[in-house]
């Protein structure tokens, strides 16, 4: 499910000009584009079952997230959204981005799912219209 980058994220394309961080098979630039262009992105280790859990949970809301699999040899992911740089430790995966913003790990997703915050967040991100 794709959305146009939200207004706040289009205002700055700093990630295009900033000096590239360490090279990795999943380039920071590519991660940025993925996060900007998809309403819901899950970064997970390749074959990780927790990533699977996150995806299943999102699917119960009718949202099919983009799952970006990170390989063992990949570096930590650095994502620049607007002026802020998000550095994701590989140990903390899976990590979710909703509407181009860092949403958090599986704990956060679970908590939002239980307390009812997840649906409005998904709607706001344009991942759900209903």
């Amino acid at each position: 499910m794709k959305i146009k980058p939200s207004s706040s994220s289009t205002s700055s394309l700093s990630w295009l000009t900033s000096s590239s961080p360490k090279p990795s098979s999943l380039s920071s630039k590519r991660s940025n584009i993925l996060v900007m262009e998809n309403a819901v992105v899950v970064f997970a280790r390749r074959g990780c079952c927790m990533g699977h859990v996150a995806k299943r949970l999102l699917l119960t809301h009718g949202v099919n997230p983009l799952v970006v699999e990170i390989d063992e040899e990949d570096d930590n992911i650095i994502i620049e959204v607007g002026q802020t740089t998000v550095n994701i430790n590989k140990e903390k995966l899976p990590v979710m981005f909703i509407g181009g913003k860092l949403f958090g790990g599986l704990e956060n997703l679970m908590a939002a799912h239980i307390n009812g915050d997840l649906l409005p967040t998904l709607r706001q991100a344009g991942a759900l219209w209903l």
Binding site: C49, M50, H52, V53, A54, R56, L57, T60, M110, H113, I114, G116
Partner: peptide, 14 residues
């Protein structure tokens, strides 16, 4: 319902 969904997601993960 939501906790049941979350349980299902975890079970499927297992």
């Amino acid at each position: 319902q939501t906790s049941h969904q979350a349980e299902d997601a975890l079970s499927q993960g297992m």
